[in-house]
Amino acid sequence: MDELELLKKDWQRDTIEYPELTYDEIYNMSHAKSSSIVKWIFYISLIEFGIGLLLILLNPKIEGQIEFPKWIEILSYATFPVIAVFVYLFYKNYKNITTTDSVRKLIKTILKTRRTVKNYVLFNLVMAGIFSCVGLYIGYVTTEGGAEKFNASAHFAEYATLGIVIVLITAAIIAFFYGIYYLLYGILLKRLNRNYKELKKLEV
C-alpha cells in the first residue's frame, strides 16, 4: 500500500486521544494575547515610526544650537505629509492581512507590509543622513570660528578631510541602524520568506 494511504487510514481512524479542552479554556484562549509575526511587525513599525517622529520633534532643539540653512528647515516640514502617507499605508496594510486568504496571498500581504516598513526606514535613514551631513559640517565650521573664517583659511586638503570624515560618520550611523533593521526582520521573516520561495518554486 502507498505510504500516504496507510497514514490516511490511521489519520481518519482518529486513534489519538487529544486533550479535550473545555468551553472556558477555549474562551480564555481566544481572548489571550497573540504573539503572531504580524503583531511583531506592527510593534517594530510603531517603534520605527516613533523614532522617526522623535527625530523630527528634536530637530528644533538642535536647530537652536546649530543654525541650519533655510532649505533644511523647509525639507523637515516637507517630511510631514510623507509620514502621513506612511501612516495611511501602515493602516491599510494591516487591514489587508486576513487569515482567511490563501496561504500564498497571506504571505504576499505580510511581505508587502514589510516592504512599506522598509521604505519608511529608508526614508528616515536618508533624512537622517542629510541632517547629519549638514549638521556635522555646520557644527565643525562653527567651532572653527564661522563659515567666512573657515572658507578664507581652508585649502583643498581641509575640505577633503572634512568631507571624508562627515561621509564616514554618516555612513556609520546609517549602517548601524540599517544593520539593526536588517537583523530584526531577517530573523523575523526567515520562515515566511522560505515558505514563499517554496510556493514560488511551484510556478516555474
Binding site: S35, S36, I37, V38, W40, T99, T100, D101, S102, V103, L106, I107, I110, L188, L192, N195
Partner: peptide
C-alpha cells in the same frame, strides 16, 4: 474555514 485559518497560522503567523 478552520483548515484555512489553522494552516495560515501554522505556516505564516506563528513564531
Amino acid at each position: 474555514w478552520m483548515y484555512r485559518v489553522g494552516l495560515n497560522t501554522a505556516i505564516t503567523l506563528y513564531r
